[in-house]
Design a protein around this nucleic acid. Structure first.
Ligand code: ZN
Ligand code: ZN
Ligand code: ZN
Ligand code: ZN
Lengths: 132, 132
DNA sequence: ATCAATTGCGTTATGCTATAACGTGTGGCA
DNA sequence: TGCCACACGTTATAGCATAACGCAATTGAT
């Protein structure tokens, strides 16, 4: 069940897993230069696979990537995911909610639209950065 | 009430309004070269203002822009907007739904997250491109 | 009228994000 | 053995976005 990763894929996943927040492809590249990475494609190819495996997510609104918060269930799709992204500290919270999923399904159905992938990203300020 | 636009802003808004689908900044630039546009910044500065005025929207998942489907109410915020984007024909449908808004509000509140801006983009296939 | 502040504008240069295209090497399998 | 699929490495290029400078027009006091 657990996907067997190549060396490059493991390195990229590790970088994302150990990062405080989301990383851009080029930031990952810089972090991995000591491990032999030289070119963006090495990163992008690994990212593509990890996305395909459902192990990481892409944050469209900031052109960057995060490790999935649910490392246990690495199936290709764990439903609609909503991300809360703090603009102060960069922290990302991954959220799942059947209500949202249901509501979006109704919206799409009303337009006779066949959904392939849904992006939900909430930009704002997390609890820590608000209370200060 | 209606925002007075500068020449550049009007040109960019017109380009988006008359376009079939979303346009990238550089596509807009090419369309406006005959009107004197020479550099990306001329487009980006106009886009920034039009976004601020609520007259256009940015589609994060494809780095492009669309005119708002509700040209009547140009206030700075017309609530949460969900976009259905057809991957075949590029058509974009702008949708609003109080249920989604409510549900997202609950989700954010649960994390004590203060929302500034919400992005919802549904990629898939529109009715026309499905029925064919 | 004059000064200062703001805003838009044009230009050049640069930086960040992503992919095309080509060739190599390896493992599985008919 | 020949073929195929896949990961990999490299170079080059394409596409998206902003920094920094200076100028001109507008506004709104003083
Ligand atoms: Zn996840
Ligand atoms: Zn924060
Ligand atoms: Zn709108
Ligand atoms: Zn379509």
């Amino acid at each position: 069940m657990a996907q067997q990763l190549t060396r490059n894929q493991s390195l990229v996943l590790d970088a994302l897993t150990h990062a405080e927040g989301p990383l851009s492809a080029y930031t990952i590249l810089d972090k991995l230069r000591d491990h032999g990475f030289r070119a963006p494609l090495q990163v992008y190819r690994a990212l593509d696979k990890l996305l395909e495996f459902g192990m990481i997510h892409r944050l469209e609104s900031m052109n960057s990537f995060v490790a999935c918060s649910h490392p246990d269930h690495h199936h290709h799709d764990h439903g609609v995911t909503a991300f809360a992204i703090c603009e102060d500290c960069g922290q990302v919270t991954e959220m799942h909610d059947a209500g949202i999923e249901e509501r979006l399904s109704v919206l799409a159905g009303r337009e006779h639209f066949k959904t392939e992938k849904t992006t939900i990203e909430i930009r704002g300020h997390c609890q820590n950065c608000t209370s200060g």
